[in-house]
Simulated assay, not measured.
Amino acid sequence: MVTDDDRAVVLVVDDDRFMLDFIADSLGEHYAVHCAAGAADGLQRARALAPALMLVDVLMPEMDGYALCREVKDDFDIGDTPVLFLSALDGIEDRLRGFEVGGEDFVTKPVNPRILQAKVAKVLALQQERSQLKSQAQYATSTAMTAMTSMSETGLLLEVMKRFNQCGEARELAQALQESLALFAVDGVVELLLQGGSGIALNGRGPASELEISVLHHMATMDRITQFKTRMSISYPHCRLVVTNMPVDDPDRCGRLRDHLAMLLEAAEARLAAINNASLASRRGDAISGTIETLTRVLADVDLQQRQSRADALTVLNGVLMRLEQSMVGLGLTERQEEALLALVREGLEDVYSSQQAEAGFQDQLSVAVHGLQQAVHGSSGR
């Protein structure tokens, strides 16, 4: 929900009056902040306001923040509202509980206004992106489910793997992996780890929350496949998955799903490696092409400069011979002496000419090589 002045509505629920005022002051410049002094009041206001985001204190009397979040997520009208928890507790058990009830992230107490503002802005941006992708994802899932209903689980697995092989980019692969979960009627979060340390994490609505990502990272430190009640994680070096609603009431289907999803993760891991290798090969090819083009330009310049240097040298030597002949008049030499001196100089010049003629063959070979490189570079670049 947004107000008439286009500011997003943020609902803060906390039994501490000072904390309510502090957060309202911290966010009031950019958001329309509403406050509720307890969980019951917060739930009532959430249903009335349909806020863009809720900030909920974890420790409250009668109903704690986790229970309030569960009530919000179970309400059809406001179930998509993102919830940020306010708490001095930020251990992995607390995060797992927050993840389990559908929270987005934790803001630790004492609250730093800048961190609070940054997390609120990030969650609202993610929520906007999710709403844009929601209709597309629903349509894609519906279409896929219709096409796959008559197929066996094994056939479905093969179709999903076939789609993986058609993915040319990591983000496309992550989206295909996330959408495949819906085909097996489970919900979860997937993450692909990319070169350079970055990653792509998605849930069924779009980009994953910070809380979901932290749970993924924690579960990745355990065994390859770890299941606890309805949650199951599968971790490969560059692909991770956490499923939140494993059908534990159907042990046979639960076991098949575990095997199928493990195979999907292994296939995604292999496809991601192929995508990374193709990207690396492309970058290396570009680097080699750039190096060859630079080398071609340098050799062409060397060829031109050497030809010019040879021509300049011949011009200088001819000029020296002409000046020497002109200077003979003033040296007082006999005609025989002049002829002997000129003969000596001419022999030296002929040696120089012969040397340059020998180099001319190598120069022509260099020119041919440069021309061939230019043809190859221009041909490969389409010019």
Rank of each mutant, 00 (worst) to 15 (best):
M54C: 09
Q357V: 14
E169C: 10
Y31Q: 06
V10E: 01
N245Q: 05
A144R: 13
Q363N: 07
A147D: 15
R163V: 01
I23P: 04
A52K: 01
L156A: 12
T226Q: 06
V9M: 06
I115G: 11
A32W: 03
V10G: 06
Q166G: 14
Q356G: 07
D312I: 09
G98F: 03
E62N: 13
D90H: 08
A137W: 14
E359R: 11
K119A: 03
V242W: 05
D25K: 00
V302I: 08
S235N: 15
L126T: 11
L261D: 02
N318V: 03
I292F: 08
E129I: 12
T146R: 15
L341W: 03
A376S: 07
G255V: 12
G155D: 12
T291M: 10
G197N: 08
R336S: 13
P237V: 05
L257A: 00
F362Y: 14
E339Y: 09
P61F: 00
L124T: 00
L157T: 08
R383P: 04
N245W: 07
L194Q: 03
T149W: 09
L43Q: 04
E104S: 08
G319E: 03
V101Q: 01
A311V: 15
V370F: 01
E100N: 13
G42P: 00
G255I: 12
N112E: 15
G290I: 09
M328W: 04
Q138V: 11
P247Q: 02
A369I: 10
V329Y: 05
V190Q: 05
N245K: 00
K229C: 10
G319Q: 08
V370C: 00
R47L: 09
P113S: 05
R256M: 13
R231Y: 10
T149R: 15
G79P: 05
T291K: 06
A300L: 09
V9F: 08
L89W: 01
A121R: 11
Q326Y: 02
C239I: 14
P110I: 02
V215L: 00
D14I: 02
A174R: 03
Q227N: 04
T226H: 07
G98Q: 03
R310D: 10
E325C: 04
S289H: 09
L295G: 07
D16E: 12
